[in-house]
Simulated scan of single mutants.
Amino acid sequence: MLHRRRVLGQRITDYRRAAGLSQDQLADAIGMERRSIQRYERAERDPRFSDLVRIADAIGVPLADLVR
Rank of each mutant, 00 (worst) to 15 (best):
A56F: 10
R4V: 02
D24F: 11
R35P: 07
R39W: 02
L63N: 11
A19G: 08
V61D: 02
R34I: 11
A43I: 00
R68L: 09
I30N: 07
G60C: 05
D24K: 14
D51C: 07
V67H: 01
L52K: 01
R6Q: 01
R6S: 00
H3P: 09
R42H: 14
R48W: 09
L2M: 11
D28N: 15
A58M: 05
F49H: 11
D24G: 09
R54P: 06
D24V: 14
D57L: 13
E44W: 01
D14R: 14
V7I: 12
R34M: 08
V61S: 03
D24S: 14
R6Y: 00
L66K: 06
A19S: 10
V7L: 04
R34N: 10
D46R: 00
Q25F: 07
G20Y: 02
D57C: 11
R68T: 11
I55Y: 02
D51A: 14
A64M: 08
V67A: 00
A43D: 00
S22A: 06
A19K: 12
R6L: 01
I55F: 00
L52G: 02
I59W: 08
I37Q: 03
I30T: 04
R39M: 08
V67F: 03
D51R: 10
R68G: 11
R39D: 03
S50Q: 13
D28Y: 13
I37M: 01
L26E: 05
A43H: 00
S50C: 09
Q23S: 03
A27R: 03
H3W: 05
M1V: 12
R17Q: 15
A56W: 09
P47G: 06
L8N: 00
A19N: 09
Q38N: 14
V61N: 02
